[in-house]
Design a protein around this nucleic acid. Structure first.
Lengths: 206, 206
DNA sequence: GTCTATAAATAGATAGAC
DNA sequence: GTCTATCTATTTATAGAC
């Protein structure tokens, strides 16, 4: 939130500040993954970080800003991951890799739940330049890969590209992962591969 | 909640009571679909029904009971729908019909959102005989159809039947529907067919 | 910036008259 | 059973000392 990224080398104090805010966001991120925005309380966040609630409000001006920071960080990490996806890969494999990344994040309990349609968080996110810019940038890159995959015939060309994009995003909050994990019958690796398979190949036999 | 289903013919008063409770559950159902359990308030429910909050508590003992009643009603309706699915249909088509039913419910804004992992509602549902019995009964019937479909080779036999079941359930809270609907590019019918297609056939070309 | 203490608003739930 | 009025606990957010 504070400008820790000036051009000059960050001072020790600034580094401490940045580290603390990282810790805050990490706690928020976990709580958002566990119980979602509405059920998460600022008291819990403060307790998890180990600081007073009032101190939290020196860093972030509201509960919504707190959550938004976590959402932005996830998007930033997604962008970093996109950068690591080999450009030589066929577009379908790139998309697979991205979905796999979101599944791993979920299995690690680090995927914040999407705000519900009517949440106060939603309005803040839609108004956040940072969040929307990152979301657009990610969507553009994925959209390019989707269309390339459709041109080469590896993704069903009859599907609207937007529908494909949303379907990929939806994997980020797929409750199936939690159910299967709670069942205890499968390893995380097996679960991820299962869901990845049903996403791209469907339930029907091929 | 109250026993409106005695063996004797229900009196006028009992019918009024049942109708009121139906109206309450309908309002709760819509609110659960719109914003989920955590964000829904009892005040909103009372306002939507047009009665005082205290009156609500004469019918249902807590917010959780209120929501549970709505969840149970959805399961009851699902059971009724299962009964109407022609027994002559191939198992894959039966499963398709069920998913289609849940998609229609969602598009109508009448599918209550699943409680988050850590919600107080979750505990109440797990402890509710009514809810769990219905859920088990539905799961058993769907499980039978899934296994039959796998035996005849129309559903991928390599997938664990439970994974298939959860995947079907997950369609009941698929955020893609909301996104596509908000986009305004497609009719409800098109959206339902799109999601149905990606569920059974996957994103990849066939 | 961090803390303790508290304000202000809202939530779920209940009392008691009718 | 329905209402108004109220209680109690919780929650977001802030004041003010250090």
């Amino acid at each position: 939130m504070h400008a820790g990224t000036t051009l000059a080398r960050p001072s020790f104090k600034e580094q401490m500040l940045a580290a603390r805010e990282e810790a805050i966001i990490t706690a928020v991120n976990r709580l958002l993954a566990e119980k979602g925005f509405d059920a998460m309380t600022v008291d819990e966040v403060a307790a998890a970080v180990g600081i007073a609630k009032a101190s939290l409000y020196k860093h972030f001006t509201s509960k919504e800003e707190l959550a938004a920071a976590a959402m932005v960080r996830v998007l930033s990490r997604a962008q970093l991951f996109l950068d690591t996806v080999s450009s030589g890969l066929p577009p379908l494999d790139k998309l697979r890799a991205v979905v796999r990344w979101t599944l791993d994040l979920q299995l690690a309990g680090q995927m914040p739940a999407l705000p519900s349609q009517n949440s106060s968080l939603r309005a803040v996110l839609l108004a956040s330049r940072d969040y929307m810019d990152k979301l657009m940038a990610i969507s553009d890159r994925l959209g390019g890969w989707i269309e390339a995959a459709q041109r080469e015939g590896s993704i069903n060309p009859q599907l609207p590209a937007l529908a494909v994009l949303y379907t990929l995003y939806a994997r980020g909050c797929h409750p199936v992962l939690g159910f299967l994990k709670a069942g205890g019958q499968h390893s995380d690796e097996q679960i991820a591969e299962l869901v990845l398979g049903t996403c791209f190949d469907g339930l029907r036999a091929r």
